[in-house]
Amino acid sequence: MNFEALKPQVETIISNANKTTDERLLSICQLLERHIEYYNWVGFYFADSAKKELHLGPYVGEPTDHTVIPFGKGICGQVALSNQNFVVPDVAAQDNYIACSITVKAEIVVPIFVNGENIGQIDIDSNTADPFTEADERFLEFVCTQVAQLF
């Protein structure tokens, strides 16, 4: 399924006031993992700015031990500081990478902003080498803009 076809589904999930925020976030994860072949782990991390940590939110995929990530550590921790998208075509080539699974070959992380503040991010791992394009970035920016409405 293409990204444009997924956008209305993302909007529908976000606007469903009968579900909790976490239920809606989990539904987004499930939608993306189910419909985008190379999205093998999809999850959200949210910032605790006082502690300078990211905390794992809803996700789908293999369980992870990385439920708390210090700002600056790994790809997610770097995005917490840089406030910019981070696309990693080959995780093996990254010095500051936290390995979640030996099957992961690439990662993309896009921050979520509320009133100009980076409150968290969507994190996607792929078992396919170098699968992410600019279209993935633009789509995930759209997803993060939608998610920001929940906060």
Rank of each mutant, 00 (worst) to 15 (best):
L32N: 06
N85Y: 03
I69D: 04
R34C: 14
L150G: 03
S15C: 11
N16P: 11
E23N: 11
T64D: 00
F3A: 06
P89K: 10
E137V: 10
V104T: 15
K51S: 14
F139T: 04
Q78W: 10
A106I: 06
K52P: 02
F151A: 06
V42C: 12
H66S: 13
P63M: 10
P131T: 01
S101L: 06
R34F: 14
P8D: 15
E117G: 05
D123L: 11
V143H: 07
E62K: 15
L26G: 05
T103G: 00
N2H: 04
I75Y: 07
F142A: 13
A129T: 07
S126C: 09
I13T: 12
N40D: 15
F139L: 05
S49E: 04
C76G: 14
V147K: 03
S49R: 01
N115S: 13
N127M: 10
Y38S: 06
V114R: 01
K7E: 14
Y45L: 01
Y39V: 01
F151M: 03
K51I: 06
I122R: 02
W41M: 08
V109A: 07
S101C: 04
K19P: 09
L26C: 03
I119T: 09
V91Q: 12
A47G: 09
S27V: 06
K52L: 07
L6I: 15
A99W: 00
Y38Q: 06
L32C: 08
P63T: 09
A47R: 06
T64K: 08
Y97T: 13
Y59V: 13
Q149V: 01
L31N: 11
R34P: 08
S126R: 09
P131G: 04
V68N: 12
Y59D: 04
G57F: 07
A99Y: 03
L150N: 04
T21G: 00
I13N: 11
Y97R: 15
V68R: 15
V109F: 02
V143F: 04
A99P: 01
Q9M: 12
G61R: 13
E62T: 03
D22A: 09
P70T: 08
A106S: 14
R138K: 14
Q146F: 03
T20S: 15
G43D: 00
C76R: 01
E141H: 10
Y97S: 08
E37L: 09
L31W: 10
E4T: 15
G57R: 03
L56D: 02
L56T: 12
W41H: 04
E137T: 09
T67E: 00
D136E: 02
L26I: 10
C100F: 13
N2D: 14
E33I: 00
G74C: 11
F46E: 10
S15D: 00
V10M: 13
V88S: 02
A106Q: 08
